[in-house]
Simulated scan of single mutants.
Amino acid sequence: MSELRERLAALDTCLISDALDSLGLAGAVAGVLPVWEGGRLAGRVVPMRTVPAEGRSAPRHLGTAALELAEPGDIVVVEQAEAGTVPVSATWGGLLALTASLREVGGIVVDGACRDVDEIRELRLPVSARAVVPFTARGRYIEDTVGEPIVFAGVPVNPGDWVAADASGVVFVPSARIGEVLDIAERLVAKERLMAEALRRGDAPSAVLGRNYEEMLDGE
């Protein structure tokens, strides 16, 4: 698993998205971005889902069960149901971030909001979210499921799937297809490296970025 994580971490989300495209797989998500510059992440998914509390109380704070389930290097992925364009609360904050850091969790991805960004930055914990707000989840959101399938921005995500996130967005890769996706993405890296070398030595852009570029996913 560590080898797969290292290979995934070496790729950017754009090339992983291209590899998914070549296989006809959905998995790329736009608009969920690092909350501090440089917060890249890659690893296996521990999914959880939060829902509006609507007057219900919870036996524990959301996120704690996912952190106890996660192995070092895993990524906690949060579906914040009905979050809307401006979520009414965060579903990740400073104490949860501290716990994640102490347990060597690889990062957090939230289809919703987080808070305590200054603390998260100081911890150097990679966190990607759709929004940042100051509002607590207490009394607003509760945990619904942990370690069960979720839907993240329309993408089905299962326990043990793979996720990567950087400044371009987030990509999910089904566990059963990770080797195939990595192989294709790595071949695309090699192709783009050759094109970059050609541009640097002065080859015409129209030649370098011609038909071969437009069709570089064909046959992958």
Rank of each mutant, 00 (worst) to 15 (best):
residue 132 V to Y: 14
residue 90 A to F: 09
residue 151 V to I: 05
residue 107 G to C: 11
residue 154 G to M: 05
residue 108 I to R: 04
residue 190 A to T: 13
residue 142 I to L: 14
residue 164 A to P: 00
residue 92 W to N: 09
residue 83 A to S: 14
residue 191 K to P: 02
residue 110 V to L: 03
residue 147 G to T: 07
residue 117 V to E: 05
residue 105 V to W: 02
residue 184 I to V: 12
residue 183 D to K: 15
residue 181 V to N: 04
residue 149 P to F: 06
residue 114 C to L: 01
residue 155 V to M: 09
residue 144 D to A: 05
residue 204 A to M: 05
residue 171 V to W: 00
residue 103 R to D: 05
residue 108 I to A: 13
residue 74 D to V: 05
residue 93 G to T: 05
residue 141 Y to T: 00
residue 78 V to P: 08
residue 123 L to A: 03
residue 133 V to Y: 15
residue 112 G to D: 05
residue 154 G to L: 11
residue 183 D to A: 09
residue 194 L to W: 02
residue 89 S to P: 02
residue 158 N to L: 11
residue 103 R to L: 12
residue 180 E to T: 15
residue 161 D to E: 07
residue 99 T to M: 13
residue 188 L to T: 10
residue 160 G to Y: 14
residue 182 L to Q: 10
residue 81 A to H: 13
residue 118 D to F: 12
residue 90 A to T: 07
residue 151 V to H: 04
residue 122 E to S: 10
residue 92 W to Q: 00
residue 139 G to L: 03
residue 124 R to K: 11
residue 185 A to D: 15
residue 162 W to I: 12
residue 121 R to M: 02
residue 164 A to V: 03
residue 188 L to P: 01
residue 151 V to Y: 06
residue 199 L to K: 14
residue 152 F to G: 09
residue 200 R to G: 00
residue 110 V to D: 10
residue 141 Y to W: 01
residue 177 R to A: 11
residue 128 S to K: 15
residue 75 I to H: 01
residue 145 T to W: 07
residue 103 R to I: 01
residue 97 A to G: 15
residue 178 I to L: 12
residue 182 L to P: 09
residue 156 P to A: 05
residue 177 R to Y: 13
residue 159 P to D: 14
residue 170 V to W: 06
residue 166 D to N: 08
residue 182 L to V: 02
residue 184 I to C: 06
